[in-house]
Design a binder for these strands. Structure first.
Lengths: 218, 218, 218, 218
DNA sequence: CATGAATGAGGATTCATTCAT
DNA sequence: AATGAATGAATCCTCATTCAT
């Protein structure tokens, strides 16, 4: 009874308040995705949320605050669902994790676009660290990283993330088409075996001779 | 005498004009690197350049214009110097190219930071395509990309770029320390052989059991 | 009680808003009358209205917008009051109409001065057409315009308007003195009988001989 | 020999100077006619004149100065040519004068448009007084102005001018078509006999009854 | 709690005018 | 005399934020 009353306590305005806040977040996400952080205006957000301007400041300190909330909650949701997806697996390996990430990020790829537009704003609040953090924990548990040392875990994580990040941006930047599973295949292959070997073979017929250089680096 | 007159041709105000323009570009680069695109103001740029406000508009249409010029000229310079560095090589292979890129980008890593802060602005002008373009030409000349198809060249290029991009950002984001050569070593290793094999082995002792999951994806 | 609630309906900020808008219009009219359209500044208008700069843009898109509003509402008011004045007449003839117009325009002659200063700006919004429109309707109902044809109605209207317009401008340009009724007398006389006949008689003693010409057209 | 040398004296830079000044005036007239006084810029004038910006200030104190010069010289030219046209006439009457004015103003109607756009600027310099001045002299020599008094000469002149002014503006505002002679006919008729008599007759069937009023003055 | 009218600091941009060459 | 690069005062306009209702 005590616990229940605590949860249902003060449903007077509290519920309404929560709904307003939620509306604002949804609206902000939509507006940020459309205009980017810098061109979004509070007014447009509140109008989209069908809420008065002043109401905004009842729920968020300023634009940066709601931006970070949108981002954090968005990333958090992705994390959650990745976790849920993997709950079915008994013993998830890196490929399984990566695949799950691709699935979930694809499903909410607006969040990534939003993250991008914030740049300096989000950086401060550790937004983009989502993948970094996950991978870091992963790498820390692997016994043998040779030829890399333990100090290089951050670098490795960054590279992993860079790989995936670019894959993500093939989607919102250009097209939606390589479906998440296919995309995961390709990226995982590169992760495991690197890029095609012939890229590193001695160029038999020099395509990098002096005559072609000017074209490459004009 | 002939040569001199060629150099001194039209030195009336043209020289002064060029100097002013150069000052503005240097100032803008400094300001953009410090504040980022969105927080930079024309006034701060002109003050840094020790030039009147109006002078700015004599040389550039608006903030976006000077931003793109800074970026384009900066990337162009990098491209130039990469080309020069490789001119010494008789038969440059991908590792050599990558290494040269690391050298030159490191030397001018403010440009990358600047590029980032512009986000949507620069994208339109093809700024970030520098590496993409270079790698694309490279990949197009390689005979065998298996298991990738030719249609996937853009994806491969993006991934290559993503890898390097992250490496670059280890510098301006955090510290300056892994020197370019070392960094190139690590990245090249991943490019050739992928990430450490043990990452993909069956987890012998499940570190991904259900009890640890909540921590990973909380 | 019913009536009251109708009047007080939505009095939250709506009343305040309306008052502010009215203040701005009054202020703008004053400033435009003083400085003319081109030399008037938004700041001066808002200061006169004892209102913040931003408030201006809450009510009008730009200077042109408030200018047209001032003009339109001003002319509208004149039209209204001309109509009211003639409501007393049973069968208003042109002289009666003209006289009413003179009365009302005189009472608000700042509007005309304002209209003038806008020139190209107001032209687009059909501002100066007030008299034109009124006279056009009048002329269209007259059976016999000989020696003019129906196609010449626009020209006749323009001429009528030109006559009155000049009369109006004797007031704001120079002095206020010929009172509206007297002025109407004179203009109506010209309208009916043309200018003094002797102007068109053969000059008995040539005042236009060759010796005086240079003085006239030097 | 003496006289000749006086005229040709200092042809060194003087001639060039004069040509430059003339170029500026032609350019200014073109630009003012296109953009109006307020939107015309010194730069556009000097560019049109193919002359350096600084050169402008060698010949005119500021924009207002060149505007007044353009206007004054333009009106002066009209006056000149009106004079010339009438030199053929032995004993010019008002109709002849008016007709000549219509001819010449029509031939250079850009000047009127320019005058308009200046409004307050030109007013100070007595620009628009051209016709006023001519008519004033005319009226002053007429023996009998009844029923007008001598004190009303300014008013009569203004009305005369208003009539012609409107006629002029039928041209640059709307179309070029009623040719000058026809236009002069119509205006002269109104000048001599006033507007069609039926306009002043008692409205037999009341077209100004109370039901139609609201339409007229809504 | 919610509202939205009001605010004004702050930034972009223009253009008449000067002055060194 | 002619030039045109440089200047900066002046103006417009936006938008995050406050506060009275």
């Amino acid at each position: 009874m005590d616990q229940e009353s605590l949860q249902v306590k003060q449903p007077r305005g509290a519920r309404r308040r929560a709904r307003t806040r939620a509306n604002l977040l949804v609206a902000a996400r939509k507006v940020f995705a459309t205009c980017g952080y810098h061109d979004a205006t509070i007014t447009e957000i509140t109008e989209t949320a069908a809420v008065g301007v002043g109401t905004f400041y009842l729920h968020f300190r300023d634009k940066e605050a709601i931006f970070n909330t949108v981002l954090t909650e968005g990333l958090e949701a992705i994390r959650q669902r990745v976790g849920e997806e993997m709950a079915h697996e008994d013993n998830p390996s890196l490929p399984v994790v990566v695949r799950a990430i691709f699935h979930q990020v694809y499903a909410q790829r607006d969040i990534l676009r939003i993250e991008r537009t914030g740049e300096g704003v989000a950086a401060r609040s550790g937004g983009p660290g989502m993948l970094l953090e996950m991978f870091t924990r992963f790498l820390e548990q692997v016994p043998d990283l040779s030829p890399f040392s333990e100090e290089e875990i951050p670098l490795l994580t960054a590279l992993l993330e860079g790989l995936m990040d670019r894959a993500f941006h093939c989607w919102w930047d250009e097209q939606d088409e390589p479906d998440p599973d296919l995309m995961a295949d390709r990226v995982l292959h590169v992760m495991q075996h690197g890029f095609p070997a012939s890229l590193f073979e001695e160029p038999q017929q020099s395509f990098f001779n002096h005559s072609s250089l000017p074209q490459l680096f004009e």
